[in-house]
Amino acid sequence: MIHIVGFFMAIFIAATSGLGLTWLAVNLGHGFDQVRVGSWSTSPKAGTLESDPYSKAVIARSGEIPMSAGEGLALRSDRDDGGAPLTGRCTYVVKGSLPPARLWTLTAYDDAGAFRDNPAHRYSFTSSEIVRDADGSFEITVSPEVKAGNWLPVDREQSLVLVIRLYDTPASSSVSQLGTQMIPKIERKACL
C-alpha cells in the first residue's frame, strides 16, 4: 500500500515540479545570453540556432522574431532607472545617446508585444524624426498626456515595454562593451 501511495506521489511531484519549472522558465524567463546594461537588456543570440535551449523555448512560445546580428541590435526595457516596472500611467523621459547606427527606432509596446492606438497614431520614433540637442543627444517623453518636443504617446491603461532597434550597428558585434553612458536613461516623472 505504501509503495502505491509513494509511486503516485512520485509521479505527481515529477509532473508538477518538472512541467511547472518549464512553464515558469518559458513564461517568465529569458535565455542565458541576456546582457543587462542600465535599465536595458539585450540578447544578441536570441532566435538564432546558436541560442541556448531556454532561449529557444521562450522564443518558440512567444512567436517573436528577435533581431539578429546581421540586422543590428535590439535593446528592451520594462523598468525605469529606479527599478520600478514601466506603466502607461507614468511619464518617462528617455534621454541620452546611442551607439552609431544607420537608423534606430524606439517603439512602445504592451507586455504582449502589441502597440496601443492613440489619437496621434504614433507608436514609434526613428532617429531621423527626433529633434536633438546640439551635442547630438536626445530626449523622448513617453507619456499618456500631450507633451512638447519628442512625445511618444501611450495608453494609460497599458503595461509598457520599450524597445530600441539599432539597424546596421557595429555595436551588435561588441555587446559586452556597451556601457551605461552609451545608452539612454529612463527617468520616471509624474504618474496619474
Binding site: M9, S17, T22, R61
Partner: peptide, 28 residues
C-alpha cells in the same frame, strides 16, 4: 519516492524545454 519524483521532475523539465521548439505551433 519523494526523491525519485524530484529526479524525474528534473528530467521532465529538461526534456520538455528541449522538445518545445519542435512541437510549438506558436513560433514565428
Amino acid at each position: 519516492w519523494l526523491f525519485a519524483g524530484l529526479f524525474l521532475g528534473g528530467i521532465a523539465h529538461l526534456v520538455s524545454i528541449l522538445i518545445l521548439p519542435s512541437v510549438s505551433r506558436q513560433d514565428a
